[in-house]
Design a protein around this nucleic acid. Sequence first.
DNA 1: ACGCGTGTTACTGT
DNA 2: GACAGTAACACGCG
Length: 257
Amino acid sequence: MPELPDLEVFSANLSKLFKGKKVTSVKVINGKNLKDPVAKLKKGVEGKTLEQVYRSGKELRFDFGDATLGLHLMLHGNLYVVSKSKEQKHTIAELHFNNDKGLAVTDWQGKANIRLNPEDKKGVDALSKELTVKYLAEVMQSKAIVKNLLMNQDIIRGIGNAYADEILWKAGISPLSVSNKIPAAKVRNLAKVIKQVLKDAVKHIKKTNPGLVTGEVRDFLSIHNSKKKTSPTGGEIKSGSIGGRKTYYTEEQQLYH
DNA sequence: ACGCGTGTTACTGT
DNA sequence: GACAGTAACACGCG
């Protein structure tokens, strides 16, 4: 549900809430999609002190020094800070800390997942230094529809459906463009726009929703927004479907094919 | 009331 | 076999 900018804000806020706190217990309610056995998760983090929370791609990482817990919320995962044991609906698991607070992960679809010591996939994080113009130019030597390419986590980690639309509009590239037909200058600019759009979104969400640890903030999006009829520069917003996902765009964006 | 929305995986097609 | 595209997962919200 949340995208990269939301997750970035969650991680900062979760750090504030739980940093330096010790895990008293891990409680798994629905373990069918866990990537590791419950016993392994418990052994990995119970009794350990949380050093920090950060984001990698669309995952949240809970760093316990000698062990790291990776949490992926998938489409519908939610986080709740809970006190005591009033269980949320569709709870996957709860982490209880020694400050009488807990963190509950819920997902009605049961898809949110937790794993111990996750490995980064081969894609580079969208906000990392590794996402350079050179890297982008290389991976764009592909016949893939550019929007699909941006959302491919094996190439760039962290861009989801909504922000792909925002980024492509700002870059002036039609989402239906074929990646390897986009001119070098546009690719160079796209690299810059990816970071700019995501960072601006983080800034905005921090400002409007300072303590956010769950849900998503999307009402400020310029293009991927069902309430908007026109772009900031006056282009009529149209919608279609790419890769089975709703895509918003305007004629201001150049189609390369 | 009912259609829409979000990411990944496993599958199909080229 | 490599690379691209797509249905399904199943419920809450407006």
